[in-house]
Structure formats: structure tokens, C-alpha cells
Design a protein around this nucleic acid. Structure first.
Ligand code: FES
Ligand code: FES
Lengths: 149, 149
DNA sequence: TTTTACCCTATAAAACAAATAGGAAAGGTG
DNA sequence: CACCTTTCCTATTTGTTTTATAGGGTAAAA
């Protein structure tokens, strides 16, 4: 069980935008540089986030990207879903009851339980928290730099 | 994020063996038939479970497989680890501190939290529970069959 | 000695992940 | 307007992983 890099990068990009909330807007290039994500790869990531309505460049194409909602209204699971369909740890528990065994399989409850737990956790964390945490880390870093002068 | 089929099949095979706990032992063929898992594929699954010491055929090769421990002493996470290394949802949080950004990255806490939650959940469920649940399901099924006569 | 069940290695096909590449379109600036 | 920048879109490449299947060897029970 691994999280793919698009989702990971996507979350990092969104943290960057959350830190800029209420600010000037950010260009793809800026995000790419600050988060050290390949500029071209970021193309796809931004595209997915935009399609899902999580970000927008509402003040014209050259205004930079902004979050489309308040950071506290965007959960990590929202971002996750921009890159993958709704979390489904195994196919057995699909909405369409994909697995013929599911009705008589003790494991299917297990999958449901785990699946819900993960979604719950991802949904309980929003970008506001993450941005604050990141800001604190960045500041600590700047201070640390000062002491080294 | 998906669970691979080996782990899934592995858990189903283990439930079958847990239901046989204290019983006659089960041949690969029996497990394969009861759980509808390809006989040859099951080769690899059984091999992994054996290597990890979760099952054994202690009374000689032709005695069938048995759980090597009591069902209540085998957690789902134990089985998981027979097929994958310790759960690590992203490489960032490896023991060797794989990601150079981790120290100053707000997301790394997120990964740790999620990772622990999943492990905790998988570790909280043991084969005894699952076997009981499966037995109940099987019985319910037999009864249902009777009513149709 | 024949059958049965296990053990082991190799291989194949398909799917997926991760990234790169190339260029069209559109918007702002001098 | 001509030019540069930024976004947008599609295709391609490369490598890895997943999901099996195949083939044969070994050991022991019958
Ligand atoms: S095998 Fe699909 S639900 Fe158990
Ligand atoms: S990118 Fe690796 S810890 Fe954040």
C-alpha cells in the first residue's frame, strides 16, 4: 500500500497555495521551485487540482493560482480525490458490489472498516492546519539560518 | 492506494486455516478450492506464509497445513507483513529518513499519523475474530440452502 | 513404484507509475 | 503589433510492479 507521487506532490503544492491564502497568487513556476517539483510534471498535478475545482486562476491567466476555497474547507481527502477515485482499498467493497464473495466473506467487513478509517483520517485534516504547521517550520528554519551567520 | 491480491488471498487462506484450528490440517488443494484461489498462485502465497512462520505442516509433508500459532495471536498486520515489508505509506517516513525534506515538511507528520493509524487498525484484528465471523456466515449459508429444498 | 503433495525458479502479459516532450493558445507588456 | 510568459493539452517513454502461469524437481505415503 503506497500513496502515489502525484497525490503527494499535489498535497505539497496545495500547502504552498494555502500559505499564500489571501496573498498575491502563485505561478506554476514558483510552486515548482519552492517545492522542488519538476515544472513539467506539475503541469498534470495542477491540471487535476483545477479540474476538481480546488484551485483557480480567477483573476486572469497571468494572475497566478489561488485556492478556490478557504484552506479550512479543503481536506486532505479532497486533494486525494483529485488524483484517484474515491478511496477503495480493495475492489471487493466497491459500490457496485464487485466481489461475488463479499456477501459471505468475513474479510469484506475488514476492508470496509479499514477503508472508512483511512478516509475519516484524511478527511479530518485540512489545509489550514497544514499551512500553519509549514509556516512554523519555515520560520524556525529562517531563525536557524540566522544563528549560523 | 490498493492492497495487493497476494495479501488479500493470504488473509483468506489464513481465515480458512483458522477455521480448521485444532482440526485435521488442510492441503493446498483444499484451501484453493474452498477459497477459489488459483492452485498455482497459492503456491507463492503459502510459501510466503511459511517463510514468516505463520503456518507449518509440522506432522509431515502430507499432513496438511496448520496455523503455527493460536488464531488470536495472529493479527492481520502479521499476515500483511508476510507479503510486503512493514507498512510505509510513503517513502518520506522511512526508518532511514529517506526524504531530505522531511525535517521541514508539514506533510511528513500527516504521513506518520496515517501510517500509524493503519498499522494500529490492522494489528487490532486477529484471526480468531475473523474465523468466528466466517463460521457464522457459512452456517447462515447452509441454513439458507435448507429452506430452498 | 506410482501417486500425491509440496517446493522452487523462471517467464509472460498487463497494468501502472513517474516523468518528459512538444507545441498550441491566450494574455499581458513594451 | 510583436514578443514573451504562462497556461493548457496530448502523446510518448521508461521503468517497475502486479498477477499470474508454467515446468519440473523432491520427498514420502500408499
Ligand atoms: S474476497 Fe471479495 S469480499 Fe472477500
Ligand atoms: S516531501 Fe518528503 S517529507 Fe515532505
Amino acid at each position: 500500500m503506497k500513496l502515489n507521487t502525484k497525490t503527494r506532490y499535489g498535497i505539497r503544492a496545495m500547502i504552498e497555495l494555502a500559505m499564500d491564502w489571501g496573498g498575491k497568487g502563485m505561478f506554476q513556476k514558483e510552486i515548482s521551485e519552492r517545492q522542488e517539483i519538476s515544472y513539467k510534471y506539475l503541469d498534470h498535478i495542477i491540471s487535476a487540482l483545477k479540474t476538481k475545482g480546488l484551485i483557480s486562476n480567477v483573476d486572469g491567466k497571468k494572475s497566478g493560482y489561488r485556492l478556490a476555497k478557504k484552506p479550512e474547507e479543503i481536506s486532505v481527502y479532497d486533494i486525494y480525490k483529485a488524483f484517484e477515485p474515491a478511496l477503495q482499498i480493495v475492489d471487493c467493497i466497491g459500490e457496485h458490489g464487485e466481489c461475488v464473495r463479499a456477501k459471505n466473506c468475513a474479510a469484506s467487513d475488514l476492508w470496509c472498516g479499514l477503508n472508512n478509517k483511512i478516509i475519516e483520517h484524511l478527511d479530518s485534516i485540512n489545509l489550514s492546519e497544514l499551512a500553519k504547521k509549514q509556516q512554523a517550520l519555515n520560520q524556525r528554519d529562517e531563525k536557524a539560518d540566522m544563528y549560523y551567520i
